[in-house]
Design a protein around this nucleic acid. Structure first.
Length: 277
DNA sequence: GCCCAGGGATGCG
DNA sequence: CGCATCCATGGG
């Protein structure tokens, strides 16, 4: 994809592989707002505005290098879409969500966000994460940064409950108290099995949440998170009645290999956006 | 009032 | 192991 990097912005010169609404609305990120022709995104303590024009888009930010990586701009989605389009179930999903990209997000932010996401709906997830940011994150003037581990250490179970986490409040408190900065920095040098094992040892993190963290924070595109939507979609297209999500995840990972994460996003966005059950 | 939401923990056989 | 049940909370 052709893009230009300037001091204060990135210019995406081709909209066939970059659609900001699709990127933000496919369920991988929660702290963003879409207004009239302008989107705002917060990742950790960093901020960007995205303006879409007729033939190009602009990512306006003080953190050009960060968001170049964040939006996965160096990756060739044309090639990915070509390969996945040979699948008849996926083809219409890719045509619909042609501009989806998988973001490179922060590890700690993903751990917290996807613990909140369990058995929850996206509107409430967004609400809770924004409340936590406003109460515990750094005030950056125009916005609140996502809280750091150190900042969230001072949060009580009641604080998490007040943010609307429900029964996840205790899980979150436990996990936050257990995590150390050392855990998080050492995590990157672990191999995949060790990373998975570590994530699954955290309260509130099961198979699906671990898959989301590995996909969205570690770029592990071999993982295929299976939520209620993917569960329904799978049974619909294969005419089955499987309820074991681990089994479904294994089957789909087998099928799509290291393109699993991309396939998952195309499926999720298409069915959810069109409200197909 | 019921069912569902980007599921996970626990207990029981 | 597999399986059932429970878990806060807001919206449809």
């Amino acid at each position: 994809m052709k893009y230009t990097k300037l001091d204060d912005r990135l210019i995406i010169e081709d909209l066939s592989e970059f659609n900001i609404k699709q990127i933000l609305d496919c369920g991988q990120i929660f702290r963003y707002w879409i207004d009239n022709d302008e989107a705002r995104v917060i990742s950790t303590n960093k901020f960007a505005r995205i303006k879409t024009h007729d033939t190009y888009a602009e990512i306006i930010t003080k953190e050009v290098d960060y968001f170049e990586h964040f939006f996965d701009l160096k990756n060739d989605y044309g090639k990915i879409k070509d390969k996945l389009s040979s699948d008849k179930f996926l083809r219409p999903c890719i045509e619909f969500g042609y501009g989806i990209r998988i973001l490179h997000q922060d590890l700690f932010e993903m751990i917290v966000s996807f613990i909140v996401s369990a058995n929850n709906n996206i509107k409430r997830i967004k609400n809770s994460l924004n409340k936590l940011s406003e109460q515990f994150g750094t005030n950056m003037g125009d916005y609140f940064a996502f809280p750091t581990l150190t900042q969230l250490k001072s949060a009580t179970i009641q604080d998490f409950a007040d943010a609307g986490l429900g029964y996840r409040a205790e899980q979150m408190h436990s996990t936050i108290q257990r995590l150390t900065d050392q855990d998080l920095s050492a995590f990157y040098s672990l191999d995949l099995d060790e990373q998975t094992k570590f994530l699954l040892s955290l309260k509130g993190v099961g198979k699906k949440v671990a898959d989301c963290i590995l996909l969205f924070a570690m770029g592990h595109t071999n993982s295929f998170p299976v939520d209620t939507w993917i569960n329904k979609i799978y049974n619909k297209i294969y005419n089955t009645t499987i309820t074991d999500r681990k089994q479904i995840s294994e089957n789909l990972t087998q099928k799509y290999g290291n393109l699993s994460g991309y396939a998952q996003q195309y499926f999720f966005y298409y069915y959810r956006e069109n409200n197909i059950n």
